[in-house]
Computed example of a mutant assay.
Amino acid sequence: MQAVRNLFRAPWSSDVKLSDKTAVITGANTGIGKETAIDLSKRGARVILACRDMEKAQAAVKEIAESSGNDDVICMKLDLSDSKSIREFAEAVNKNEPKLNLLINNAGVMVCPYGKTADGFEMQIGVNHMGHFLLTYLLMDLIKRSAPARIVTVSSMAHSWGSINLEDINSEKCYNKNKAYAQSKLANVLFTRSLAKRLEGTGVTAYSLHPGVVQTDLWRHLSGPQQFFMKMARPFTKDSIQGAQTTIYCAVEPSLEKESGGYYSDCAPANCSVAGKNDKLAEKLWQLSCQMLSITWE
């Protein structure tokens, strides 16, 4: 019902300004990440694009600065499939940035063929969950010092078809690219829930969201029948600007200041799956993630 109600609501918009705020956006050289960067730049934020492909990132910096009229846009190298790169990126941010008010965990891979990250994680759980988990952990002290601050993680409605296989999180026994994607997106929702609990009273809040069915580069790994279905569904899908709106809503909407840990869609609170509200599962995933990343995060 929520989805039907949202169809008839006026589009969300806000004139909140972000002068004097700094945002890091992962995967911001394309798609909804880039549109998020343009919007936050227009609001006056300093925006750091955290991207794997520096050539594309530099082109995006130029485009974002031009369309927003804000020159305070830079790009930095970040490969979420490699913990060494994540640590180098976080070290540079912690050293050079006096504050970090917004961390937008946006980058992701979708239904790709089986592959492993530099650290031996299955690619989708590795990039979509583990990479962002480690990044958030490494930037946490700076984010807390910058409070009020927000951490926004882009999940997907695909989380509701997912389950977390704690015994085989890297899908080594059996790999189904759709299930592995759904598992990684459920991990985003559970991470946000656990994170919000740990951040109570710090002035830092956390949100996860479904951007909508968005026409992006992520579709490139879809099978033939899936591609065909997506072409048929195109009139009902969102472009990147529409797809970025819920991310922006979670980043700036004043009424969310006291909310944390929730899941959003179409710029409004939404229902996540039963598994997405399972605090025991969230805690088990948290502990497993810490163990696999060799970190201690109480």
Rank of each mutant, 00 (worst) to 15 (best):
D15T: 15
D15H: 13
K17L: 13
K17E: 13
L18P: 10
K21C: 11
A23I: 05
V24L: 12
V24T: 00
I25M: 02
I25L: 03
G27D: 10
N29T: 02
T30L: 04
T30E: 11
I32M: 14
I32V: 11
G33N: 05
G33F: 08
E35L: 12
E35H: 09
T36N: 04
T36R: 03
T36E: 01
I38M: 14
I38W: 11
I38R: 14
S41F: 07
K42C: 06
R43I: 06
R43W: 01
G44P: 09
R46G: 03
I48A: 07
I48R: 05
A50P: 06
A50I: 07
C51Y: 02
C51G: 09
C51H: 05
C51D: 08
R52T: 04
D53F: 00
D53H: 06
D53I: 01
D53V: 02
M54A: 01
M54Q: 14
M54G: 08
M54H: 08
E55G: 15
K56D: 03
K56L: 11
K56V: 06
K56T: 10
A57L: 01
A60P: 04
V61T: 13
V61M: 08
K62R: 15
K62W: 00
E63T: 14
E63R: 09
E63W: 02
I64Y: 05
A65F: 04
E66G: 14
S67F: 13
S67N: 15
S67T: 14
S68E: 10
N70F: 07
N70E: 05
D72T: 12
V73W: 00
V73H: 04
I74W: 00
I74Y: 01
C75I: 13
C75Y: 09
M76L: 12
K77E: 15
L78W: 00
L78G: 10
L78Y: 06
L78F: 04
D79R: 04
L80V: 09
L80S: 10
S83C: 14
R87S: 14
R87P: 00
E88Y: 05
F89M: 03
E91M: 14
E91K: 15
E91T: 12
N94K: 12
K95M: 10
N96Y: 12
E97M: 04
P98Q: 09
P98A: 04
P98W: 07
L100A: 09
N101R: 10
L103R: 08
L103D: 01
I104W: 06
I104A: 05
N105Y: 03
A107P: 02
A107R: 01
G108L: 01
G108C: 05
M110S: 03
V111A: 13
